[in-house]
Design a protein around this nucleic acid. Structure first.
Lengths: 343, 343
DNA sequence: CTGAAAGCGCTTACAG
DNA sequence: CTGAAAGCGCTTACAG
């Protein structure tokens, strides 16, 4: 029964505990654990064993207090429930998690007051940087007040062009969809999409129009069918399109949910997809696109990559050196069964 | 042109800066800012103004180093893409965000190694507590190693009954659905659900069976149609049910996606919903349930409330005192158009 | 009511 | 190769 007064019981072990157990100074213990400075191999060994024995975990707060860096970043989202925020968040989390960085998550719920409150809190925790995730592609006001750390806006760009914003190339996405439909031999193409108040709707429509123009064509009616982003609108709009333009041989939809509604109506009307009419969606929302009849071809915005890119930019900005610039990322086409060469 | 050498330029203002500018000691500045100790009103005023002028934000790391508490918690999720994790996460974030607590988000991606790594990191950041969010309702192994802070498991309970677990009452949810269908006057009720390997599937089925038994009934075929959680299975199973049991007047589905497939098949077969057959889903996944034809009645698991409850439990555990116990939360029925009294 | 001093747990020059 | 000392930014008894 030896008494070992040195071993801590109720509190987490500190470097002092480790040093004591190893019979060295805290300075030496620190060096041994961090692999810094010249420490005799045997000494290092002893320290490491002591640390292990006490399951020592260095206090990151103390560390952060010293060095200029805390190894934390803030992830500011405007709405967690948004399907778009989540993959971005995953990508960013992944980009950081791989390193030594921990992520503070804050949901401002679209409220500017709450956002400011969270920014204050994050700054007082001395985050090394901030990622601001939007839920719409429309530009958003930049964070208020002086922010002493780098900020990267993702998905929704900052309204200030001097800020770093990483966004989806929706124009390119619209192009991609149309080019695919053209390659399938379709010529009479309608575009049914969401609320025209969304930049995303307008951008995708612009890209679609441009791709059609390149082929000497225009979308049916010369303009998109703007509406809302859901199935109900998709069903209604499909009825209108087919009635006005029986010759329609392809429909590009601004979202998978709209496409889903379009598919239902075409099914009700007995129009064969893709034989008679090809249908392409947007978002590549697995749950929606992969189980429709037929399974839906769609544009994927690569949101996870977008998040990861934002993470890397933030790293670069934190490390200083060459300041990263804003950038746009292209989507990609995911082909399923709702599009095919015309029969 | 006065020279004011005291005002910091490149670094964040510290309490020392504030104290200097206000012409008091740091101790007094600290008390003034925290409303602690007796400070003359005028003095406090001066300090507050100085703090404002320098946009002083107290260094939370330094604070955390002193007191035993850091005001941070770790939110450990096993998969961010899971639809179920997100509302829980929102609820928890909300419960904390309202207070002074910041949340570290870690996605272990279902990998035990990664989970351990994240736990280490969180502990070295001295979080005050941990919330572990599962993505299935099956019990999961408790966190490995000695965890010196309170842990609350949510959605997926810990396999160790001594741990605090906050879960959904799936048995009750199954009951709720069946009781509603019975109240609608249905008597020939089938149950189509997901993978029997999921505790959630078995629990919901058990609840359904119990509610039927209470009414002196049994589900058609005497047991659930187990399959997978998606629409494709819903479509296939609905065909089987209708063929074997033309008398079927209600189908309770283990998920909204299954229900969606069931609705499609019934539509194809020309069976009227809800007139001829009532259909109820589970999850109340807005995007799926609110736009089907007809709109889907479904059981909502109140996941956001679950997350908030977990947050409050963790608070209680951190504050010590009466240790909170594990608990189950009931779901609620959300009535839409796919169920109605029999004609 | 105010301030000097100690200390939280660590790291980093600087001596030895 | 090792250790004593200073210091990161704050708070908290304790004097005055």
């Amino acid at each position: 029964m030896s008494t070992e007064p040195e071993i801590p019981v109720n509190r987490a072990a500190t470097l002092t505990d480790v040093a004591k157990l190893a019979g060295v100074s805290v300075a030496t213990a620190s060096k041994a654990i961090n692999g810094r400075g010249d420490v005799r191999a045997a000494t290092r060994q002893r320290v490491l064993e002591a640390a292990e024995m006490l399951s020592f975990a260095p206090n990151a707060l103390a560390r952060g207090l010293l060095g200029g860096r805390t190894g934390t970043v803030g992830l500011l989202t405007s709405d967690l429930e948004g399907r778009f925020s989540i993959p971005i968040l995953m990508g960013a989390e992944d980009a950081f998690g791989a390193g030594q960085v921990s992520v503070f998550l804050c949901d401002a719920r679209g409220d500017a007051i709450r956002e400011r409150y969270h920014v204050r809190a994050l700054l007082s925790r001395r985050v090394d940087g901030l990622i601001v995730v939007g839920s719409r592609t429309d530009p958003r006001p930049p964070l208020a007040g002086p922010i002493p750390v780098p900020v990267v806006y993702v998905y929704a760009p900052s309204a200030n062009p001097d800020d770093i914003s990483i966004t989806v190339d929706n124009v390119g996405g619209g192009r991609l969809a149309i080019e695919h439909l053209l390659a399938c031999g379709r010529r009479n193409i309608a575009h049914i999409t969401g609320d025209a108040g969304y930049q995303a709707a307008r951008d995708r429509a612009d890209g679609a129009a441009a791709a059609l123009a390149d082929a000497g064509l225009a979308m049916l009616d010369g303009k998109p069918y703007y509406g809302s982003w859901d199935e109900t609108w998709g069903r209604a709009a499909a009825h209108i399109v087919v009635e006005r333009h029986p010759e329609v041989d392809a429909i590009f939809c601004g979202s998978d949910q709209i496409a889903r509604g379009v598919l239902e109506t075409l099914r009700d009307l007995g129009r064969d997809v893709p034989g008679s009419i090809a249908v392409a969606g947007f978002d590549n929302w697995e749950a929606v696109a992969a189980h429709s009849r037929p399974r839906l071809t769609s544009i994927d915005m690569n949101l996870e990559q977008l998040g990861a890119a934002a993470g890397r930019r933030l790293f670069a900005a934190i490390d200083g050196g060459d300041l990263p610039r804003s950038d746009q990322y292209p989507g990609r086409l995911v082909m399923r069964d709702s599009t095919a060469p015309a029969q």
